[in-house]
C-alpha cells in the first residue's frame, strides 16, 4: 500500500479536520490534538451522500475518538469508520501517518 504525501502537519489546526484528495477519493483527515498524530476516514456522510465529514466536530465517546457529522450529528469512528448510530452506514477508514512533520495517507 502506497502512502501519498498530503500536507504539512502544521497546516491542520489542532482539534480540527481537513479534506484531502487521494487517488480520486475524498479523505477526511483529523488532527485530534497538537501531537503529531492524524486519523483518516472517508469524507462522505453516507446519510446525505455529501462530502462534509472533515468539517465535523471531533469527539470522545466510549474511550474512542469519533467525528460528529456537521449535518445531522451521526458519529463515525476515526480509527475504524464504524457508524455509532447505525452500522449499515459504516464508512471506509484509511491508514495515515506523520513522517518528519509531513502527513501521508494510504488509499
Amino acid at each position: 500500500m502506497a502512502f501519498t504525501t498530503i500536507c504539512n502537519i502544521d497546516d491542520i489546526i489542532p482539534g480540527t479536520g481537513v479534506c484531502a484528495l487521494v487517488a480520486g477519493e475524498q479523505v477526511a483527515l483529523f488532527r485530534p490534538t497538537a501531537d503529531q498524530q492524524v486519523l483518516a476516514i472517508s469524507n462522505t456522510d453516507p446519510f446525505f451522500k455529501a462530502n462534509v465529514l472533515s468539517r465535523g466536530l471531533i469527539c470522545q465517546h466510549q474511550g474512542e475518538l469519533w467525528v460528529a457529522s456537521p449535518l445531522k450529528k451521526q458519529r463515525f469512528n476515526l480509527s475504524t469508520g464504524v457508524c455509532m448510530e447505525n452500522p449499515e452506514f459504516n464508512i471506509k477508514a484509511y491508514q495515515a501517518r506523520v513522517v518528519d512533520g509531513v502527513v501521508e495517507v494510504a488509499a
Partner: peptide
C-alpha cells in the same frame, strides 16, 4: 486558507 475544499488540491467538490 481554511475555506479551500481540499488541503492538497485546488479542485472543488465534484459532488
Amino acid at each position: 486558507k481554511r475555506f479551500a475544499h481540499f488541503i492538497n488540491s485546488d479542485e472543488r467538490d465534484a459532488n
